[in-house]
Simulated scan of single mutants.
Amino acid sequence: MRIETYPDFEMMAINVAQRICGDLKAALDSQDRVLLAVPGGTTPGPIFDDLCAADLDWSRVDIILTDERWVPGDHERSNTKLLKERLLVNRATDATLLPLYVATDEPEEGLPQLIPGIEARLPIAVAVLGMGADMHTASLFPDSAELDAALAHNAPALIPVRPESQPEARITLAAHVLNGALHKHVVFKGQDKRDALDKAMTLPPQDAPIRAVLDGATVHYSEN
Rank of each mutant, 00 (worst) to 15 (best):
W58V: 10
Q166K: 14
D192V: 06
S78H: 04
G190T: 12
T66K: 00
P107E: 04
T172F: 07
A138I: 09
T93N: 03
A157L: 10
D198H: 05
A125R: 07
E106H: 05
T80H: 09
F9I: 03
V213A: 06
R2M: 05
V128W: 05
E223Y: 02
L24V: 03
T42S: 14
L147W: 12
W58L: 07
G130V: 04
R69S: 04
D105M: 07
V187L: 05
L65W: 04
E68R: 02
G110D: 04
D94Q: 13
N224T: 15
G22R: 11
V16P: 07
M135A: 15
L182Y: 01
R60H: 13
V219I: 09
N154A: 15
L100D: 00
W58F: 12
Q166C: 10
A95E: 00
N224W: 11
S222F: 03
D148Y: 00
A155V: 11
A145M: 14
L88K: 06
G117N: 09
V102F: 00
D195C: 03
I47A: 06
T96Y: 01
L56M: 15
V186I: 15
L140R: 08
A133R: 14
T66D: 12
L56Q: 12
K25N: 13
T43Y: 06
H183S: 15
E164F: 04
A26V: 07
A152K: 13
Y221N: 01
L214A: 09
E68S: 07
P107D: 09
R211E: 02
K84F: 15
L100V: 04
V187N: 04
I171C: 07
N224R: 13
A150D: 11
A127C: 08
P116L: 02
C52K: 14
I115E: 13
D57E: 15
D134P: 08
K84A: 10
P142S: 09
P209F: 02
A13C: 10
A92V: 08
L214Q: 06
L140S: 12
E119Q: 11
